[in-house]
Simulated scan of single mutants.
Amino acid sequence: MTTPRERLAAVGNQIPPLIALIVLWMLLWGEFSWLNLLVAFVVGIVVTVVFYLVPVQLSGRLHPLHTVVFFVRLILDIVRASIDVSWLAVKPRLVTSNAILAIRLHTRSDLILTWTAVATSIVPGSIVVDIDRESSILYLHVLNLHSAADIESFRRQVLDTERRIVRGFGSREDVERMRGVLPVNRPSARRPSARRGAGSEPGKGTP
């Protein structure tokens, strides 16, 4: 049986999607009124009860500096990728070489998995086509990959995005799990345990 604290936590986890549904309803109507707010609340309650989803466990942690770093880097990635994709569109004698990649993340958090998928998809040149939630694997369609080095570079970029998200607002468990994960600009560095064959990094063993 669930304890009162667990039931209270389950109710609290349904509040964010309820608020999102209310905001969406108000945006669809295009105006604010108490009647629209009341109807949005009732519709939101019905949707969250009838179409009940597994609650997303919020981390309850926010690091302001790392959060700012994540968003600043995301904006820079979007600008850079937009320029690259624009050049591909006008490049003479373009030889396309796209790929579907499966990238295993380090986290097991639904929240971090969703944030990483969204942050990766909004950067031009790649889009998430499927997610294996149980194994924390993102399947992505990626443009302009011509070599194994290009594939490995993209894998490291996705894992680096995950690392920045975890450092910004991941749980303490996620932070501990990400310790020792190297940023994208140091792909060749290894800890001593890794050199002795202690194990492979997530994201490298999945084709």
Rank of each mutant, 00 (worst) to 15 (best):
F154M: 09
T116V: 05
P202M: 14
T116P: 01
A102W: 01
W87I: 11
S126D: 00
V123N: 02
I137F: 02
T161H: 10
S136H: 02
D84W: 00
N144D: 15
L105A: 04
D174M: 09
T120M: 02
I78Y: 03
I100N: 04
R155L: 14
I127G: 00
G199R: 14
R167H: 11
I151G: 01
S147L: 05
T116W: 00
S200C: 02
R93W: 10
Y139C: 01
V175Y: 08
R196F: 05
V184Q: 08
V128E: 00
D174S: 10
L159Y: 08
F169P: 04
L140N: 01
L138P: 01
H106G: 03
R164I: 04
E162G: 08
F154W: 13
R163T: 13
R164L: 07
T114P: 00
R190E: 14
A194L: 13
V158K: 10
A99N: 08
S136A: 06
R133H: 11
S121H: 06
Y139T: 04
P187V: 09
I83F: 11
L88A: 03
D84F: 08
W115I: 06
P192T: 09
G180Y: 08
V85Q: 11
R133F: 10
S82L: 02
H141D: 03
L101M: 15
R167L: 15
S171G: 07
S147G: 07
A81G: 01
S200R: 03
N144F: 05
W115V: 07
D110R: 13
S82K: 06
I137G: 00
A194E: 15
H106Y: 14
V79S: 02
A198V: 07
A117H: 04
A149S: 09
R93M: 12
A119M: 10
P202D: 15
R167G: 09
K204E: 14
L138V: 02
R177C: 07
S86G: 15
L101C: 08
R190C: 08
A194W: 09
R156N: 14
T120P: 00
R164Q: 07
M178D: 02
V175G: 01
R163L: 15
S97H: 15
P92W: 07
L111N: 00
K204R: 13
D110V: 02
P192Y: 11
V118A: 12
Q157P: 05
I127D: 00
S153H: 15
N98G: 11
T120V: 04
Q157S: 15
G125T: 12
S193P: 01
G168W: 10
G180V: 14
G199A: 11
V95D: 06
N144H: 12
E201C: 07
I83Y: 05
L159H: 05
R163F: 12
R167S: 14
V175A: 07
P92T: 14
P183L: 12
R196H: 07
K204S: 14
S109M: 03
P192R: 12
S82Y: 02
R191V: 13
L113F: 10
V123A: 06
I100R: 09
V79R: 04
R163I: 07
L101D: 00
P124T: 12
V90H: 03
P202A: 15
A99P: 00
E173W: 09
V158M: 08
S153P: 06
V129F: 05
G170D: 03
A148L: 02
H106I: 03
V118K: 08
L159Q: 09
R179E: 15
V142C: 06
H106D: 05
F154D: 08
R155V: 08
V85E: 03
L138I: 00
E134S: 06
R104T: 05
